[in-house]
Amino acid sequence: MRIYMQTLHSAEQPLRYYHLHLQPDLLSGWNLVRESGIQGSRGQVTKEHFEERDEAERTLIKRRDMQLKRGYRVVFREGAPRDLNN
């Protein structure tokens, strides 16, 4: 599952991105990988580990909603869960 978000383009602010990626790990858990930064430059990457996929999906949706409130817009999504309608 993957969600890629960007801010709206403006002359005052550089274009920023926020990328959420959910992936299984080798020991039957799940990792939520978050990458953010200025478009065209190297971003900051953080990972969170979860034992259950449902918990990882809830956190992904929560993080997405936080970024939507900050002015980001979903540009691309892949493998969306049931309640990822925004």
Rank of each mutant, 00 (worst) to 15 (best):
A11R: 14
T59A: 10
R82N: 10
L68V: 10
R77I: 08
K62T: 01
K47Y: 03
T7E: 13
T59I: 04
H9C: 00
Y72W: 09
L84F: 14
R53F: 09
V45T: 15
T46C: 07
T59H: 11
F76Y: 14
V75E: 08
Q6F: 02
E48T: 05
R2T: 12
L8G: 12
E35D: 07
R16W: 07
R73T: 10
D54R: 11
G40H: 04
R73E: 13
T59L: 05
E55W: 00
R2V: 11
E52W: 09
R77D: 10
R82T: 14
R82L: 13
R53L: 15
V75A: 06
L27N: 00
I61E: 07
G79T: 07
R2P: 01
T59N: 08
H19Q: 10
T59P: 00
M66G: 03
R58K: 12
K69Y: 09
S28L: 11
I3Q: 05
N31L: 12
T7N: 12
M66K: 09
M5D: 06
L27S: 01
L32H: 04
K62W: 00
W30A: 01
I38R: 11
R63Q: 01
G40F: 04
L84H: 12
W30D: 06
D83R: 13
Y18A: 00
V75W: 05
R58W: 00
R34L: 08
L68W: 05
P81Y: 02
Q6A: 06
T46H: 07
Y4D: 05
D65P: 03
S10L: 08
L27Q: 01
E55D: 08
R70F: 01
L60N: 05
